[in-house]
């Protein structure tokens, strides 16, 4: 067979070799940093690495589900910021914690539904629909809620700050618990639910899924609502950690880039239909180790961006080399 490199697992399915390479590189970097950087391999620092990647993991869960269904969610960061703002404003206005969370969940579900409606019913390409909704949502929240400001300061009494900056169990910070919960939820959705099988089917062959009578439209709603909710939780985690909601994370775009980087590096191809929770973990592990190591080495943010961009290109080139595309059997729209 043409795919000589690929290994096979139980079901005779191809294992993604990129995933193995990324795991090996992560391990190598870890060893290198542990030897070369003082204070990297301490329990304290590793705890920080874990806590710091919580919001990235949660966002990546949302993005991964969308990409497996062969969609793209460019409004993820906008939803994250908008969700955190909605929650905090409600708290400031005197609404109770649980009610505020419920309303924020409702608002984000609405945004997710709007995205899905544009994509599944109006049939606008996902990239354009979510790009437009990202602009719309950010602009609306800044105009209507913040009065043009781009920064929202959270008081120390904000329940999100209180809850998410403490430990849920002794030694388990709340963001880490939330991160694990997100991974478990994503795993269940993709692997064991009927909707999850439809998500893979849509990513694999949308025409066949539609023709076979699978609920492609309602599943699109499930996908984008799930992503929006993940964004909301990630937003709360980030807001609690920094004490602010910063709209510049939407406009500078580097977080969105990082999320896509995690998904692609982890081995979830943009053409959809493949990948799972394990891939998210693999992708985040590399980015988290790299980010922490570079920060400890005092690499400037700009230089970090250069390196991350470089890593993405290397990964894509490597993927093309390891899983050569067969132009004769490609389906239209493959990336």
């Amino acid at each position: 067979m043409a795919i000589g490199f690929a290994t096979k697992d139980r079901g005779g399915r191809r294992r993604n070799l990129l995933e193995l390479v990324v795991m090996a590189v992560t391990a190598a970097l870890f060893v290198l940093f542990a030897i070369g950087i003082e204070g990297f391999a301490t329990p304290g620092n590793l705890g920080v690495v874990l806590s710091n990647s919580a919001s990235l993991v949660i966002l990546s869960c949302g993005m991964a589900v969308v990409i497996v269904s062969r969609g793209l969610e460019l409004a993820l960061i906008a939803e994250m910021v908008a969700g955190a703002t909605t929650f905090s404003i409600l708290i400031n206005a005197g609404v109770g914690g649980p009610e505020a969370l419920l309303l924020a969940v409702g608002a984000m579900a609405l945004v997710g539904c709007a995205n899905a409606w544009l994509i599944a019913y109006v049939e606008i390409p996902a990239m354009l629909a979510t790009l437009a909704s990202a602009m719309f949502v950010t602009g609306l929240v800044r105009y209507a809620v913040l009065g043009g400001e781009f920064l929202l300061l959270l008081p120390k009494s904000n329940p999100a700050v209180v809850l998410l900056s403490g430990d849920i169990l002794p030694g388990v910070p709340a963001p880490v618990a939330l991160m694990v919960a997100a991974l478990v939820a994503t795993g269940f959705l993709l692997r064991y639910s009927a909707a999850g099988r439809t998500i893979y089917a849509m990513g694999d062959n949308f025409q066949a899924a539609r023709l076979g009578g699978l609920p492609v439209r309602t599943t699109t709603i499930v996908v984008y609502v799930f992503a929006a909710l993940m964004a909301l939780f990630a937003g709360l985690v980030t807001a609690a950690a920094s004490g602010t909601v910063d709209f510049r994370t939407v406009t500078n775009g580097s977080l969105l880039f990082e999320v896509i980087l995690v998904v692609v590096l982890g081995g979830i191809p943009l053409r959809g239909g493949r990948g799972g929770v394990r891939n998210i973990i693999v992708g985040v592990a590399l980015i988290a180790v790299l980010r922490n190591g570079m920060t400890l080495m005092n690499v400037t943010t700009q230089m970090q961006d250069v390196i991350k961009g470089f890593v993405l290109i290397i990964a894509i080139v490597l993927d093309n080399y390891l899983n050569p595309r067969d132009t004769e059997t490609d389906t239209a729209g493959d990336l």
Partner: peptide, 13 residues
């Protein structure tokens, strides 16, 4: 091939 089956999935799936 274009719209009949899912190639990443098994016969059973």
């Amino acid at each position: 091939k274009l719209e009949g089956f899912f190639e990443t999935m098994s016969i059973a799936e």
